[in-house]
Amino acid sequence: MAATSAGPAQALYYSRARASMVPQILGLAFIAFGTLFIILSIVQQRIDFLLVPLITFPVGSLVAFMSVTVRVDEHRVVIVFCDVFKRTVSRADIAAVTTDNTAGASGYGYRIMGPGMVGYLVGGPEINIEMKNGRVVVASTDRPEQLVRVLTPRSTPGSQLR
């Protein structure tokens, strides 16, 4: 008889941070700008005006509705930006976890922030995951203190020397 699968791992932490007001307003302005060109193409009877909405609608939607999802289970941390960019980090590879509660100081979007440092940012509080190999992953999250508690290893009572 075949063994049944255990199914997906139970999530210890789940967060979906959405874009703050600045990118939402900019994205919606891009969409409105594209709508204006659709109206102009109808009024002026010019099909070449339809090229602008083909660019502004997808870009505006991506900017206005961007999000970062962070999911932690027993073995890994999965960070997904806009359901496009995905990073999986093994919990065994994590050296330190810190939080940065400044709103939007690092910018917005998928960011290469220097050698060995990448960010998945939508504004708001951020978490910095430093790995044993020296690389750093920065991600926006709505509950950074809870994520730090989940990712920080707890010492067992018998492991401390007296």
Score class of each variant (00 low, 15 high):
112 I>L: 11
59 V>A: 04
110 Y>F: 09
114 G>A: 09
27 G>W: 07
155 S>Y: 12
42 I>P: 09
120 Y>D: 02
16 R>I: 14
100 D>F: 11
13 Y>N: 04
116 G>A: 00
79 I>G: 12
8 P>I: 01
3 A>S: 04
98 T>V: 04
123 G>H: 02
54 L>D: 11
55 I>E: 00
129 I>L: 15
116 G>R: 03
58 P>N: 09
131 M>G: 08
161 L>F: 00
82 C>K: 04
106 S>G: 07
90 S>A: 14
109 G>W: 09
75 H>W: 02
129 I>M: 13
93 D>F: 07
81 F>Q: 14
136 V>A: 03
108 Y>W: 12
154 R>H: 15
81 F>S: 11
80 V>G: 02
48 D>T: 10
79 I>F: 13
136 V>W: 05
105 A>R: 10
56 T>D: 03
11 A>V: 02
38 I>S: 12
141 T>S: 12
25 I>H: 00
100 D>M: 13
101 N>A: 09
6 A>D: 13
84 V>I: 15
1 M>F: 05
136 V>K: 15
6 A>S: 15
143 R>D: 14
77 V>W: 06
116 G>L: 03
143 R>L: 10
119 G>M: 03
67 S>V: 03
39 I>W: 07
58 P>D: 08
100 D>S: 14
41 S>F: 01
95 A>F: 07
99 T>W: 05
162 R>E: 03
99 T>L: 08
2 A>I: 06
19 A>R: 15
156 T>H: 12
22 V>M: 12
148 V>W: 01
75 H>A: 01
157 P>N: 05
38 I>C: 13
139 A>P: 13
20 S>A: 12
98 T>N: 09
26 L>M: 08
55 I>N: 04
65 F>Q: 14
44 Q>S: 04
56 T>L: 02
138 V>L: 01
19 A>P: 13
138 V>H: 02
48 D>G: 06
154 R>S: 12
24 Q>V: 13
44 Q>M: 03
35 T>S: 13
91 R>W: 12
21 M>T: 15
22 V>R: 15
44 Q>P: 01
63 V>Q: 00
74 E>Y: 03
